[in-house]
Design a protein around this nucleic acid. Sequence first.
DNA 1: ATCCCTTATCGCAAATATACGATTAATAAT
DNA 2: ATTATTAATCGTATATTTGCGATAAGGGAT
Lengths: 111, 111
Amino acid sequence: MAINKKDEFSPQEQELAALAKAMSHPARIAILKVLAGKNECICGEIVDLLPLAQSTVSQHLKELKDAGLISGSIDGPRSCYCINWEAFEAFNNGFNNLLNDLRKQKANQCC
Amino acid sequence: MAINKKDEFSPQEQELAALAKAMSHPARIAILKVLAGKNECICGEIVDLLPLAQSTVSQHLKELKDAGLISGSIDGPRSCYCINWEAFEAFNNGFNNLLNDLRKQKANQCC
DNA sequence: ATCCCTTATCGCAAATATACGATTAATAAT
DNA sequence: ATTATTAATCGTATATTTGCGATAAGGGAT
């Protein structure tokens, strides 16, 4: 693509898209599910559970972290990741707002 | 990437990721908002509202359609697009299921 | 200090996504 | 039949993502 046009959309559209993008790979959905299914924050256990190399998992974790969906802290030689609750609710709110707009039109569908 | 590893994840993970991916570009969020804000199904009006060329918009519409989020029917020389209600609810349900799993762990956060 | 374990980062290759102009297809209007 | 209008598709260039191995970096343990 010659030029990146993403900047020409509204901040809300960009934010919602960025969060959706962070969840747009099955590996990252799987990581979120692993984090959701454990009482403790996981580090390298995720690598054992996924069919991916350690470096690849680390990269996916970084993307989730950059998007703000998870937070990570260094705990000695290992890293500890957790769900970032606020960001997750923010995505949910943004998505529900969109969904509510859609619902208004439900009766007027023509195709 | 040498090999596509997406197939090695569960169908649920793949489906949720695919829907998230369809919404992972601000232009496609904008298209959904346009469809939500009009009583009639829009065709080329979308092109006028977005800062993108006609062929690019058509490509984005195809991606939303392939993901099942919108449906389109040919109406004479123009095309008519609408929100696909069921698919949208499906994404919402999948996301809420994930969110509910997360909520269970809210009290046990360690970072 | 040295070794080991864990994780982040670098560098690279291959696959996908993004964007556009040009062309095609399909129908409406003249 | 010809022309105009609308939208899909093709071809292409560039950007980004995905994935891995190799290497570094940061602590523990001996």
